[in-house]
Design a protein around this nucleic acid. Structure first.
Lengths: 137, 137
DNA sequence: TTGCAAATGCAACAGTGTTGCATTATGAAA
DNA sequence: TTTCATAATGCAACACTGTTGCATTTGCAA
């Protein structure tokens, strides 16, 4: 009886499946030097799957910690691959948004320091700089 | 003749008008301890003016440098009053977004330092921390 | 008080993201 | 290899956010 219940619980565990859409989108983001928006991914995949599927794949990849979700200065949501997150998944680096070519890049080697004097509990950071990237300046 | 031209040029200069909507929205934001979204402003003003007018007033106030436009970690656009910008209008301070009560506050006394090793030209910053505010922690 | 044009209201539109539901297809177990 | 539960997808429809055009209203300077 007890074992029966455990088996039932085990069966309830969600198993992750690898699909064409998921694989291609993940590779696209991983191989891109800049962060990509949903629209950009949709154009790049070119009818690979439905608009909604892209949203759901991006959601899944973000939850699984395989990609970063970055909100731009303009409020545009972009997704970037985890390049230096092999040891520990880390969202807390600075992103740079170019005002000319609209590219968003992760500045994973730039660290920011600041002191919080008040009783705030920090769990997430989104530091975005905006200006001109080396290509456009 | 010369003077005529100058007068014509002067006439072309856009004059700013103070309207009920602009005044009330500006006061609402100035008196709020947290940054407000368009929806929150719409609810607070309660039919004072059209939805579109609020967008246009917010745009105008931002351009005139009377309020700050802040993009949240979630991508939600909020507007905050300029409290310590009397001498010099300054957008480049840290904002804190509470995950519990959803409030966004300006941490104008917290300064951040970082070093940029690459050839980036920085013109704007959007530093947003997310977590629990003193009231919710 | 008059008149220019800044500001508004309304309608319509575009972009982004979500949800429900029927259908497809993945991968583990038989 | 085949079977099958269910994860994942496609489609339609919806909600929310922000924009644009245009006729009308209203602030303010002359």
């Amino acid at each position: 009886m007890q074992q029966c219940c455990i088996m039932k619980l085990k069966k309830k565990m969600k198993t992750v499946r690898n699909t064409t859409a998921k694989t291609e989108i993940q590779e696209l983001i991983a191989n891109s030097p800049v962060a990509l928006s949903h629209t950009e991914i949709q154009s790049a995949t070119n009818g690979l799957c439905d608009r909604v599927t892209i949203y759901r794949v991006l959601e899944r990849l973000t939850v699984e910690g395989l990609i970063h979700k970055v909100v731009n200065v303009d409020g545009v949501v972009k997704y970037a691959g985890c390049h230096s997150c092999s040891e520990k998944h880390n969202h807390n680096h600075i992103h740079f948004s170019c005002q000319k070519c609209k590219s968003v890049t992760c500045l994973e080697d730039v660290e920011s320091t600041f002191k919080m004097p008040k009783k705030y509990i920090i769990s997430e950071m989104n530091f975005t700089l905006s200006g001109l990237c080396p290509q456009c300046s």
